[in-house]
Write a protein that binds this DNA or RNA. Structure first.
Lengths: 253, 253
DNA sequence: CGGAAATTTGAAATCGCTCAATGATAGTGG
DNA sequence: CCACTATCATTGAGCGATTTCAAATTTCCG
């Protein structure tokens, strides 16, 4: 198994080697997808989660009319499909945005990990809370700000996440999304997404050339977007019990 | 300690008496609030979570311009403030919508529970995933549907949650929110919320008298709202390991 | 090179917003 | 109980943002 991007799991609780390895052993399959291919469809039985190993993907909620809302853009290291662990049938569709490699993890194996590796369970719990905050911020963004501001907020959040991925120049974002897909993220129409790009361009906060966007003034973008900056804490003090109370290596089977 | 509404915690994993009791012992304080009082403010240190024991409350994200988005309406039994466990400073403000009673739970005590009561930890994990689905559905609703449809979706979700609370007649909803607050949920303005109420009234799907709303045609509302129905699973099969692998009662201190 | 998909632009219609004013309702203190 | 006040609900009119429909242009890919 090649190096996995485990920064998301390690973000809140530094896992030891055994724990990280236990995670890498969860996958039963390594699938490849091409752009626009469905990884999982809303309504499918939800007995698996997915680890995005390479490429970009999206979680979408489809409305009864067929229109589609992209509720999350996934980057390498993301666990996809976890919300549907609470359901019998998946709440969201997962779609590859670029060619992508995905590790398939049966839910039952994840369940075993909850027993054997409580630190990993805690890491996944915190990761879920982090996702909630991101969703809440996007709800605010869509509910209370204009299309241009939402676009600024989207670019900022991508910048932040690409930085965490140790991307070489995160302020240069090569968007693999079409304008229609960006529109599906922002809650606007494709035509308006185009005008919105032009509008943001005109502010001078970003410069755009095709699908390559360079963020020129990040503090300016942030105050323009009106979305507060979130400072996640690396090792939450309230979880200190985990380090003392639980034997370190009981992970291997 | 009086009977707590623990249906949310028991929804996914039936806790035994010791586990439920361990949870009730978490609280260090029982606070009362009046309508509109702030329970916690965005930016406050996030070293506590809150259990809503009685009354309604709201989680709000405030934008940099001062406008406020209500990201969640809380009913009795909800745990509030958990997303901010991942942060040093709270991401959301918590506000009482009616007079309310709230149990204050220090984060550190919650952390201890993660070690001593893994079933409770799993229940909170699943609850967080459920919240993510609700947030995703609202993102779809706000991003892709009209104001009237969003209002229908809001009323439906309240109906569903009131039913789970064993409310006597959940199709009769006595909203404790002003129209301005409803507008802050739906991502519209207060004036438009009023027109939207009138519009929904005119469809015949609901009837409204002041703040009392009666849902007349629930299937009709559901298809009108375009939000898919979610069937959460009571005891996810994938977590079966928890029942075998972990000693049942090691909960008491 | 050809064809499909994506981007860009225009014009008209619609939805929701803002500003402003008027009625209702509830709470308060006399 | 009533006047007083503040908050909330309602309505109108005009404006702005976004949508819709339609067409032209560009880019991508085989």
């Amino acid at each position: 198994m090649p190096d996995l991007p485990l920064h998301r799991l390690n973000q809140f609780i530094a896992l030891n080697g055994a724990e990280a390895e236990a995670f890498t052993r969860l996958a039963v399959e390594d699938r490849r997808y091409v752009r626009h291919e469905l990884i999982r469809c809303q309504g499918d039985p939800s007995d698996e989660v997915f680890f995005l190993f390479e490429g970009w993907a999206a979680s979408c909620v489809d409305s009864a009319t067929g229109s589609r809302q992209i509720v999350k853009i996934h980057l390498p290291g993301d666990i996809m499909g976890a919300p549907s662990l609470a359901l019998r049938r998946a709440a969201e569709s997962l779609m590859a945005l670029t060619s992508a490699r995905v590790h398939v993890i049966p839910s039952t194996r994840l369940g075993e990990l909850f027993v054997t590796a409580p630190k990993l369970a805690a890491a996944m719990f915190l990761s879920a809370q982090q996702e909630r905050i991101w969703l809440m911020d996007r709800l605010m963004s869509i509910g209370r700000t204009s299309a241009v501001q939402r676009l600024a907020a989207l670019l900022l959040s991508l910048h932040e996440r690409l930085s965490a991925l140790a991307s070489p120049s995160p302020e240069r974002i090569e968007l693999p999304l079409s304008q229609e897909e960006v529109a599906n993220v922002l809650g606007i129409t494709a035509v308006h997404a185009n005008r919105t790009f032009a509008q943001l361009d005109a502010t001078g906060l970003v410069s755009r050339c095709g699908r390559v966007i360079v963020l020129l003034d990040i503090p300016g973008l942030r105050s323009f977007s009106c979305v507060p900056k979130r400072e996640f804490q690396q090792t939450p003090a309230w979880l200190s019990g985990l380090r003392q109370g639980v034997p370190e290596v009981e992970v291997g089977t």
